[in-house]
Structure formats: C-alpha cells, structure tokens
Design a protein around this nucleic acid. Structure first.
Lengths: 224, 224
DNA sequence: ATCAGGCCTGAATTACTGTTCAGTTCTTGG
DNA sequence: CCAAGAACTGAACAGTAATTCAGGCCTGAT
C-alpha cells in the first residue's frame, strides 16, 4: 500500500467534518431545521453532496451529531455557571438563567435542536440531549433540597417541568418576539427564572434576590 | 338545474366530513401524526383518497381542523372545570389539573396536536390552539392576582410557562411512561399541578391544599 | 323514466430530497 | 515520475406520499 493517512490528511479530514457540521449548524440557526438539507449544506461546506456521506452515514446521523454538539456546549455552560455560584440555591438559579440566556440568544437554533419537526428520526439524540440537561438541573435541585433550602420532591420531574417552562416561554411559538431589545430580553430571563425557582419551592422574596444575583453575570451574554 | 342539495344530501356531506375528521383523529391517537396520511384515513372513513380533497383543500387544512377541534374540546373542559371551582385560586388549580389529566389520558394525540413533527405546515393552527389555551390560563391567573391571592406578574408569560411545564413533564419525550398505573398518573398530575401553582406564587402549604381539592373531581377522568 | 349536475373513485402524476456510485482527482511512498 | 489506493464529484436514482382528474355513479326534479 502506497497511500497512508498522514497527519496532514487526518487533519484535513477532521477539518472537513467540522466544516460540514458547522454548515449544518449555521443552516439550522438561519433557517431552522427545514433548511438543513444535504445539498445546501454541501455547498456551504465547499464539498459535493456525495462527500457528506463519506463523513456521516445519513442525514439523521448528521443532525444527531449536531444536536449532541450543541447539547455538550450547553451542558458545559450550565456547569460552569452553577459551579461558580456560592451555594446550592444560587447554583440552581445560575443554571436556570444560563439555559434561559442561551436559548434566547440562539432562538432559532434552540428551537431546531429541541422541537422543530425534522423529516428524519432524531428522537433518540433529542432524548439524550434533554436527559443530559434535565439530569444536570435535577442534580442542582437535589443539592438544594439536601441543603434544606427546598422541600423534598421528585427532582427529575421538576427538572423536566422547569425546562419545559423555559423553552415554551422563551423559544416556543408563543414566546414574545423581542429579539433585539436587551432590556426586554433581560426581563424575560428574570421573569422565567423567578417562576422556575418558585416552582421548586423557593419563597417569593428569596427567589427575587437569587434571580438578581444570577442575572448579573448573564447580562454580558445577553449583550453578546 | 335539476340537482339540488336537499337536506338529506347536506346531512350526508356533513357526516362524511365528520367521518374523515374522526378517522384522522383516531389515526393520530393511535400512531401519532406520522400515521395521519390521506390514503389510510380515506380507507378508515370509507371513502376514496380523492374524496378527502372534496372536503379539505389539502392535508394541512385537514390537520389544522383536527387541531382546532381538539383545542376547542380542551378549552371547553378547562372552562367547565374552572367555572365550577369556588374561588379564583381553586379555579386556576382546576384549570391546570384539567390540562394535566387531558394530556395524560390522550398522550399520543396530545403530543401530535402540540409538537410532533408533521410533513406539512400547521404552525398557524398550533399557534392559535396554544394561544387560546394559554389565554384561558392567563385570565385565571389574572383573576387570582386581582383577588390578591398571587403577586403581580406577567400573566401571559406565566401561562405559557405553565403549559410548557405541563406538556414537557407529562407528554414530552422525558415524561415517565406510566401509562396504565392510575396511582402513578394521579401522582404525576398532583406533582405537576403543585409545581405550577407554586410557580405563579402560591405558597407551598396552600398549594398542596388546592391540589388535593382540584384532583378530586379529576380522579374520575383519570380512571376513564 | 330520464337527464342534468354535482359527487365519488383510484390509478396516475408530481414533487421533493436523501442516497448511491461509476468515473475523476488527489495523495503518498518508492 | 509512477503506481496504488483513498477521497471526491455530481448527475442519476429511488422511495414516499400528497395531489390531480377523466370517467363512472348517484341524486333529485320533471
């Protein structure tokens, strides 16, 4: 055999793979999942349609990896924000705020990843994505319960409900469309975070304080 | 002209239209939106595929009416339950419980109506459906606020968030799959209703009482 | 009984994209 | 520079359902 995968080739292959994924991500962010089609993505990534299939067995696999990628980023951001908080309740507030800010700043992408109809079956990876995020939120709720800040409860169900509330209120079809008013965006984040904290049993007064603290660092992100 | 639409003919036409809609509804309840296809529906309704198009201009219109129909039923049930409650807070609890019980007892249909991918565009009717239900919940929240039972808040956003929480926790992909255990179903309804009430500012202790009261009449439905 | 007119049928058409693959181009070690 | 093998191309293919429509059928007034 005279052809070997040299380091250079490996790097180029990886770069192409990334380019294809990035093209898919950009398409989704611009035109929703309906815009994620093989031919346009190939054009965007400067390859032929057939080439996409040398990197992903099918469109479903491509989208699944897209979902997994976005989900990983999201999870990392949540952990970072929560770990930086001074206590369990603050951590929960930070986690919720992070989710809210993220979905708001990338609404179209978030909607595509979460719930938008796709012509192929990506149920499994969407499920995995939600399970990861919900699990993280659940463990933060659990920590607050163990610290005695919240009443005992079904934390998994509570986490799922919280995410549902955030998504529906901020990126769902009824979400107010205040895309470019930073003030309104911040208000929406605060309102929804407050609802979420109260839902798991934080008292109104204390919840309001936590929200204010949690939104401070997030403001930067909203601006970005 | 020798042919007139006599009363008898009008009745038959209406019956056929209903039969087609019912077939669509049954298909959705059994196999989700993916099972809502013209040919199978036509078979179910005892007509030819082409006939469907004499009653509905397109599949999108058919599904839109299906959504509208289910939505009307839902709204009526919510109003009935809420109006029968003794006060604004109880009414809100009753409304939330009704939604929870309904989506649980028809999970597949609910998922199809709410969020399942469809190959045609039904965004508009889904939006209208949500708007109606959310509006009703919002007005119940508003009533409780005006009665001084809840803190002032963005009731529209709160209603949207509540519905998101209910749907995600009970029919979403992460919803626990306890389809046939009445006890677990009741638990789920109670848990989620409690979360919802606390989210809008009902104190934990009072919320627990409201939930118990609201679930009493709903138990019958869960059993059915 | 007759026929004018809408109603129904269901096979054929259409439209759309994901997927394939034979041929071409590129990369590497000798 | 050459041979071997991999990667890439993009036009052709294929599967799926929604939608159409020419012809037959039924209904109702005369």
């Amino acid at each position: 055999m005279v052809y070997r995968r040299t380091h250079q080739v490996v790097k180029r292959l990886a770069a192409r793979r990334s380019a294809i994924l990035a093209a898919a991500r950009d398409s989704a962010a611009e035109g929703g999942m309906a815009a994620v089609q093989i031919a346009p993505i190939a054009v965007r990534a400067n390859v032929a349609a057939g080439t996409v299939y040398r990197y992903f067995p099918s469109k479903a696999d491509l989208i699944s990896e897209l979902i997994a990628e976005v989900s990983r980023d999201e999870l990392a951001a949540i952990r970072r924000a929560a770990d930086a908080a001074p206590g369990p309740s603050s951590a929960l507030a930070a986690a919720v705020t992070t989710v809210a800010v993220h979905v708001l700043s990338q609404r179209r992408l978030a909607w595509g990843i979460l719930a938008e109809p796709v012509d192929v079956d990506v149920t499994a990876s969407r499920l995995a994505s939600r399970r990861e995020i919900a699990g993280e939120i659940a463990s933060r709720i659990d920590a607050a319960v163990r610290a005695g800040h919240l009443p005992a409860q079904d934390t998994a169900l509570a986490a799922t409900a919280l995410l549902g509330a955030l998504h529906e209120a901020l990126v769902g079809p009824l979400a107010p469309d205040n895309t470019d008013d930073p003030g309104r965006l911040r208000d929406a984040v605060q309102t929804v975070t407050l609802l979420a904290l109260r839902a798991v049993g934080v008292l109104d007064a204390r919840a309001r304080g936590l929200v204010v603290q949690a939104v401070l660092p997030a403001k930067v992100l909203v601006g970005a």
